[in-house]
Design a protein around this nucleic acid. Structure first.
Length: 821
RNA sequence: GCCCAGGUGGCGGAAUUGGUAUACGCGUACGACUCAAAAUCGUAUGUCGCAAGGCAUGAGGGUUCGAGUCCCUCCCUGGGCACCA
């Protein structure tokens, strides 16, 4: 018998599948389309990470099940090679990004090809291919034409190291998503996408899609919807009004002062009247220069009162002071608040520090209830009633005609009385799309001086090619390197034909990846970004797997772009899902080494090539799948691979012995081969569906043991088929060895017969006071009476009863008898 | 501070959703084969105990005939948000 030679087998079948196009779906004629998608890699590092191998093979296992279940599976692959990720890497290793793209493409496709996945190689897509980014630019124009792309001057995030602006989503607790540098603020005019028009759709869509809870809550938090009212406060002896946003209009009578952000326009409007204007200006300057770091650390609240100006509380017409403090942010709500120190922690803290009046207007219920699950704590009550802080439910007091009402009822009544307006505020801000970098799709917009406006490039002129230039490095100014090339930016106005200037910024990488799955359905289309027929056939994506770190980055953008395209009538797939592009999303876990995240600086990076060479890809796939459920992470250790190698060798020997007639049953038969076969089919099918490959493999291991002691043709075939998604090469080789001319991977997945799932006997568990005292094998259809009788007759049960009469005997069908004494 | 996901042997992890806790794999020990080693195969392997039998699923309470699973209080780990009014 030939030894299991994985090198030979794996090479043989990979070449064979490629030649035969085993995994190429017919994009036009497919009858049961099924789209499995993995986040395509950005080739920023030398090669594929071991975690990447696990995800890719993990999605492949799922896709292979679907294929064998009769679906036309598309499992596309491509490279997200445009953008700052790859450019930063190219700069680091001293290469031109274009050159790096060529090199990394070769290496990545080699590695991806060596994993034995059922990739649809014909449909691959690279975001830096002009035939691809042509449509990224086209997409930008559609957004612009529909009012969803616009320019505005704003205080934007600036990464000094990457020398570009960033979207809010790309700033992770004050640091750049790419390089972890501290992000600063700059006042710049930039292109934005109007994602804030879609807050409600993005929120309500979350309830309809089958996505990981963690991702859905992350998106909900990020969007940050809060419901309240906007209320005007008059400034005494002035026409100015101070408009505030509050979620607690019910506490209006307790508003004892107001706070505006340092950037608030009221300061300049009332410059003449503010007696301490110098002090106020000084404070303004101070908070402007405060870095995010200082703001975070300096939890102690600061502020200055506006001397000489007071506001009027519209509920009770009392005069209240106005303060400037940087705990009020200019970017949220109206940039001004009414402060209710009795019922808001921040206002409470501020009022105590500056000795401002605290007027309670909510009476806590008696006794004080504990907070409902999921709600924040209610704050604390102190003995001095004047200084109480209460943020829980209750009834209104000190509020004239509203006294005695429940606060929920009073909310809108009080709003109405002061002619306030109900209002919903969001934390989400528009997507900043410009980047002052080289390696990305040039934004297809043109500024015409004589027309005095921005115009979209004519669609027939796309793509606007990224010029081949030597000086590609970021300039460090607020201009992209392309601004140094008149040949690139000098152009004609699409409207008047006069001299005009091209936008020199490129678009965010996340725009490239926001629509790539669409292109996979029709990658060679030269007339459209994809044909409607193809999109309607293949979309939405059935199963998407990727990293949870993209929860509010890629995964938010991808939904936004799809829903927006849907809205502006460019796509019509997934209409019944409100344009949601992805039916199911699962986040995979993180692979660690010795409990730590793999990183170059720690020197604990696993090179997948090395391991594939040493153990073979089938063993690696099995190991990575067996480690833990796909949605969980796990620690990589070489020793564990050995167990899977042993298993594959046993499989190899088993089928060899079956084919060449040397099979000798072992004598430790535990279960009936037919039963275990059908049970295993059920379990493996369900486990793969749930991405619990570890338990599926474990079930196959148990089944193999049984096959070694008792065999059956149906078992032989079923086992081989079930192992196929996990170890596609060895199983294909065995399938051929058994005489098949066809590929195993397009065969029909085995089905179980429910009649074999039922056992004719089971182990009846006997408990006395909840403790296990005996187990006895009884027929499956035993009656309750007989079961109880047999249970009480057990020797050990009699000993433990010690002659006492049971108080109660409980019978659970098919399981146990529980005796209480 | 808030939200989400977790916490089970020496290790990775199972547990039919309230019913025999620790499946499967790794590791370890002993045995077989071998001159020997590796590989392979077999047996054992939560813990205390000679045994009967206790005790064990982050800690402590509760519900139940019965809790890893449900409820309450708390502690740790990972991730997200964070002066958002």
């Amino acid at each position: 018998m030939a030894k299991y030679n994985f090198k030979k087998i794996e090479k043989k079948w990979q070449e064979h599948w490629l030649k035969e196009g085993t995994y190429e779906p017919d994009l036009d004629k497919a009858k049961k389309p099924f789209f499995t998608l993995m986040m395509f890699p950005y080739p920023s590092a030398e090669g594929l990470h071991i975690g990447g191998v696990r995800t890719f093979t993990g999605v492949d296992i799922y896709g292979r099940l679907k294929r064998m279940q009769g679906h036309d599976v598309i499992e596309p692959i491509g490279l997200d090679g445009f953008g700052i990720h790859s450019e930063n890497y190219a700069i680091k290793v001293g290469k031109h990004p274009k050159k790096h793209a060529v090199d990394s493409e070769k290496n990545f496709y080699r590695q991806l090809g060596s994993m034995g996945n059922g990739f649809a190689w014909n449909e691959r897509v690279e975001t830096y291919d002009p035939e691809y980014y042509r449509w990224t630019q086209w997409l930008f124009i559609q957004m612009f034409n529909n009012g969803l792309a616009y320019r505005k001057k704003a205080k934007v995030n600036w990464c000094p190291k990457c020398a570009t602006v960033l979207a809010d989503e790309q700033v992770l607790s004050g640091e750049c998503e790419r390089c972890s540098s501290e992000v600063t603020k700059k006042d710049l005019e930039q292109w934005f996408f109007k994602i804030t028009d879609y807050t409600e759709k993005l929120l309500s869509g979350l309830d309809t899609i089958d996505w990981d809870d963690a991702v859905r809550t992350a998106q909900r938090n990020w969007i940050g919807r809060s419901e309240g009212a906007e209320i005007n406060f008059k400034v005494k002896d002035s026409t100015d009004v101070l408009r505030v946003f509050t979620t607690r209009p019910d506490t209006l009578y307790g508003a004892t002062y107001m706070v505006i952000s340092p950037e608030h326009e009221l300061i300049s409007n009332l410059k003449e009247r503010i007696k301490n204007i110098n002090e106020v200006e000084k404070y303004k300057e101070l908070s402007k220069n405060k870095s995010d770091e200082e703001r975070k650390e300096g939890k102690e609240k600061t502020g200055v009162a506006l001397d000489g100006v007071v506001a009027i509380n519209p509920a009770n017409n009392k005069e209240i002071s106005i303060w400037v403090a940087d705990y009020v942010l200019s970017g949220y709500g109206t940039g001004a608040i009414m402060a209710v120190p009795a019922h808001d922690e921040r206002d409470f803290e501020f009022a105590k520090k500056f000795k401002l009046p605290i007027v309670p207007v909510i009476k806590p219920p008696q006794p004080i209830p504990s907070p409902p699950p999921g709600a924040s704590a209610f704050g604390h009550l102190e003995s001095n009633i004047e200084a109480d802080l209460w943020v829980g439910p209750g009834t209104i007091m000190n509020s004239e005609e509203f006294n005695g009402k429940d606060l929920e009822d009073a909310k809108w009544a009080i709003t109405e009385k002061v002619k306030g307006e109900r209002k919903i505020n969001y934390r989400l801000r528009d997507w900043l799309i410009s980047r002052q970098r080289y390696w990305g799709p040039p934004i297809p917009m043109i500024w015409c001086d004589s027309c005095g406006k921005w115009l979209a490039e004519k669609e027939e002129n796309l793509p606007i090619l990224l010029p081949d230039v030597k000086e590609f490095r970021p300039t460090g100014t607020d201009k992209s390197p392309l601004a140094n090339f008149p040949k690139f930016y000098e152009t004609k106005c699409p409207e008047c034909g006069g001299d005009a200037r091209r936008e020199t910024d490129v678009s965010d990488t996340f725009l490239d990846s926001a629509w790539y799955y669409i292109r996979y359905t029709d990658p060679k289309n030269k007339k459209e970004f994809a044909s409607q027929d193809r999109m309607n056939k293949w979309l939405p994506v059935d199963m998407y797997i990727g990293g949870a770190e993209h929860s509010v980055l890629h995964l938010l953008y991808v939904r936004f772009i799809s829903i927006a395209l849907h809205d502006i009538g460019k796509v019509s797939f997934a209409k019944d899902m409100g344009g949601e592009p992805i039916t199911s999303f699962r986040a995979h876990g993180l692979i660690t080494k010795d409990g730590a995240k793999m990183s170059k600086s720690k020197g604990n990076v696993i090179d997948p090539d090395e391991y594939m060479k040493a153990y073979g890809i089938d063993a690696m796939r099995m190991y990575l799948a067996f480690l833990a459920p796909l949605t969980q992470g796990g620690d990589f250790n070489d020793a564990g691979i050995k167990g899977l190698t042993r298993f594959l060798e046993r499989v190899w020997e088993f089928y060899n012995s079956r084919t060449n007639g040397t099979y000798k049953p072992k004598e430790n038969s535990k279960e009936d081969i037919k039963k275990i076969t059908h049970k295993t089919i059920k379990k493996v099918s369900e486990d793969i569906e749930k991405l619990q490959y570890n338990t599926a493999i474990s079930a196959l291991m148990v089944m193999l043991s049984q096959m070694e002691s008792e065999t059956d043709d149906f078992a032989d075939v079923s086992f081989l088929f079930m192992l196929a998604p996990f170890a596609p090469h060895i199983t294909e080789e065995i399938f051929e060895m058994r005489g098949s001319k066809e590929s195993l991977h397009t065969q029909k997945w085995p089905e179980y017969d429910a009649k074999y799932l039922v056992d004719d006997s089971f182990n009846l568990v006997v408990q006395i006071n909840g403790k296990l005292r005996a187990t006895v094998e009884v027929p499956f259809d035993i009656t309750e009476e007989d079961a109880k009788k047999i249970a009480l007759e057990q020797e050990n049960v009699e000993t433990h009863l010690g002659g006492k009469e049971p108080k109660k005997v409980i019978y659970v069908k098919g399981r146990l008898v529980s005796i209480v004494v």
